[in-house]
Design a protein around this nucleic acid. Structure first.
Lengths: 173, 173
DNA sequence: TGATAATTGTTATCCACCATACCAAATAGC
DNA sequence: GCTATTTGGTATGGTGGATAACAATTATCA
């Protein structure tokens, strides 16, 4: 619980008479105390996740891929011949919501739905050549710009430790 | 990436004479290869964040507080006398979206908006007695059930290291 | 074999968040 | 005094997640 509680004395309290220091543009106020907020794992997790997603989007912007779409392409590449339900479940996407997502990828010719021969209910999903090419380029961008920055910031060992802890949380909680 | 929490396949609902107990309802298939997905920080971050939020909601369920609401109460407690813009900005909430959120908290008598005397545009936010009481109880629940589980799972040192890395990412990225 | 249950992809909704544009009242700057 | 800025607020649109329901198909089993 040791959070820096720098006792910031409120500068404007009793001293009312104008004492407006050189304020730049925005009304300058004393920064707020985050307090116990910085000890809340959920809060830190969410803020970090938002930053990471933003950076991911920037890095892979030329390919117009969202993190979710990228994860689908990755999974299709490593698991050819699976159907929608299997892919969606693995990624934690609900089947109804996966439909529009696939429509988007398929309309961009990144993957295709094929009716299965042995079970005519299901759609076998496969990457197209273009899908594989886009995925390949995306991987390079992510590795070079996105993940590289992490290693630079945390160090390889810490980055690995971070991933491991996150995986533990996702698995055990 | 993805992430959603649902999943919970309802075990028995519409079937009256159904005798399908031991068999898992879903057709069993070989588990999919996560592959490089498990190396993607964004993916692991999001999945962990969802789990943490779920657990937070469960732990603090008797108080009916969301993570976002809890963070607002925490911030108000440590920063009395601030206005909506300051609180919202600090939490990364856009002012328009903060209005309804405050309406909710105020209607539950957890905080109040007071017109500032020196700037009649702004609303000074303050916790009510009830707000402080709820916050206090929430803190205890979170510490006892939620964060305690983390320490048990990761260990105190690792938990601290995790928080530090997340803060670094949120700050530097 | 035939009736019934379960699964698959899909549509239609609903809700929670997030983001932008815009507005009136109040204040700050000049 | 006139203009620009700030503040809280409304309206609105977009995106994701969640549930119910459905037709076609397959599995189950009496």
């Amino acid at each position: 619980m040791t959070v820096s509680k720098t006792a910031a004395a409120d500068p404007a309290r009793g001293a009312r008479p104008a004492r407006k220091e050189p304020a730049e543009t925005a009304a300058e106020t004393t920064p707020l105390q985050m307090g116990e907020l910085s000890e809340l794992l959920g809060y830190s997790l969410k803020r970090a996740q938002l930053k990471i997603f933003e950076d991911f989007l920037r890095c892979v912007a030329p390919l117009q891929l969202t993190p979710a779409q990228f994860s689908v392409l990755l999974l299709l590449d490593q698991n050819p011949g699976r159907n929608q339900t299997e892919i969606a479940n693995t990624l934690g996407i609900l089947r109804p919501n996966f439909v529009a997502m696939l429509d988007g990828l398929e309309s961009r010719d990144l993957c295709v739905r094929m009716r299965s021969t042995n079970d005519r209910r299901s759609h076998i999903l496969m990457l197209t050549d273009k899908g594989r090419a886009v995925l390949s380029r995306a991987k390079k961008l992510v590795a070079a710009k996105h993940e590289a920055r992490l290693n630079e910031l945390l160090g390889s060992a810490n980055r690995a430790a971070l991933l491991e802890m996150l995986a533990t949380i996702a698995r055990e909680f």
